[in-house]
Simulated scan of single mutants.
Amino acid sequence: MRYVGIDPSTKTGFVALSGAGEVLRAKELTGIGDKDPKRITTLVQEVVQHIKPGDVIGIEGFSYNSQGRGIGFQFGLGYAIRIAMYSRNHSYTEITPGQLKKFATGSGNTAKAEMPGPIAENWGYSHPSDNVLDAYVLARIMFSIRNREQLTFSLTDYQKEVIDMIINPAAAKKPKAKRKAKRGDKR
């Protein structure tokens, strides 16, 4: 069994951990060229070529607050990877960017530039690509979910909280405060 993390981006991070949590593969995938749809198509092909049957996969969810020219690409690539995995019967777990950051650092608002230090401190892992670092944390989350009973004493409280949010998202949602009805409101 392998634990896989995928961070979809123009340079997609891919990490596969062994059943013991050792890094088997850590790679930045780019596809071919810089024009779409060829770049997205070949990038998706690269991603699925690295996935094996039985892999336990974590993929970073969409960043809905992002802005800029690359947003269309990010959503297109993200959905294309998910469709390719679905069509090949690979199941995956969606992990939000905030959950990824919190699992690595204790804060869901950590800047990308601040991620390498806590990742090296927590797991002794480093890589020059922030996409591969994110993929590593995603793979580490999947490893921790599957092995949480054995890791109980080595996981931090914030890591346990992230795992609980991923395993049981309905319980993690906080109830919204009820809005007081104003005169004339139809409810």
Results as ranks from 00 to 15, higher is better:
Gly21Leu: 00
Glu22Ser: 07
Val23Glu: 00
Val23Leu: 01
Val23Gly: 02
Arg25Trp: 04
Ala26Phe: 01
Ala26Tyr: 01
Lys27Ser: 11
Glu28Pro: 05
Leu29Ala: 09
Leu29Arg: 06
Ile32Phe: 09
Gly33Met: 04
Gly33Phe: 02
Lys35Gln: 03
Lys35Cys: 01
Pro37Asp: 02
Pro37Phe: 00
Lys38Phe: 02
Ile40Cys: 04
Ile40Glu: 03
Thr42His: 08
Leu43Met: 11
Val44Asp: 03
Gln45Ile: 08
Val48His: 05
Gln49Val: 04
His50Asn: 12
His50Gln: 11
Lys52Ala: 03
Pro53Trp: 00
Pro53Glu: 02
Pro53His: 00
Gly54Cys: 01
Gly54Asn: 03
Gly54Leu: 01
Asp55Gly: 01
Asp55Ile: 00
Val56Lys: 08
Ile57Arg: 02
Phe62Gly: 11
Ser63Arg: 11
Ser63Leu: 14
Asn65Gly: 15
Ser66Thr: 14
Gln67Thr: 15
Gly68Cys: 09
Gly70Asn: 15
Ile71Phe: 12
Ile71Trp: 10
Gln74Ile: 11
Gln74Ser: 15
Gln74Ala: 15
Gln74Met: 15
Arg82Glu: 08
Arg82Gly: 01
Arg82Pro: 00
Ile83His: 06
Ala84Phe: 12
Met85Trp: 01
Arg88Asn: 14
His90Trp: 02
His90Asp: 04
Thr93Arg: 06
Glu94Trp: 11
Ile95His: 10
Ile95Leu: 11
Thr96Tyr: 13
Pro97Ala: 05
Pro97Lys: 06
Pro97Leu: 03
Gly98Glu: 13
Leu100Thr: 13
Lys101Asp: 08
Lys101Asn: 09
Lys102Ser: 14
Lys102Cys: 15
Phe103Ala: 04
Phe103Pro: 00
Phe103Val: 04
Ala104Lys: 09
Thr105Pro: 09
Ser107His: 14
Ser107Phe: 13
Thr110Lys: 07
Ala111Met: 13
Lys112Phe: 07
Ala113Tyr: 08
Ala113Gln: 13
Gly117Leu: 14
Pro118Ile: 13
Pro118Ala: 14
Ala120Gln: 13
Glu121Tyr: 12
Asn122Gln: 14
Ser126Phe: 06
His127Glu: 02
Pro128Val: 04
Ser129Pro: 05
Asn131Leu: 09
Val132Met: 06
Asp134Pro: 06
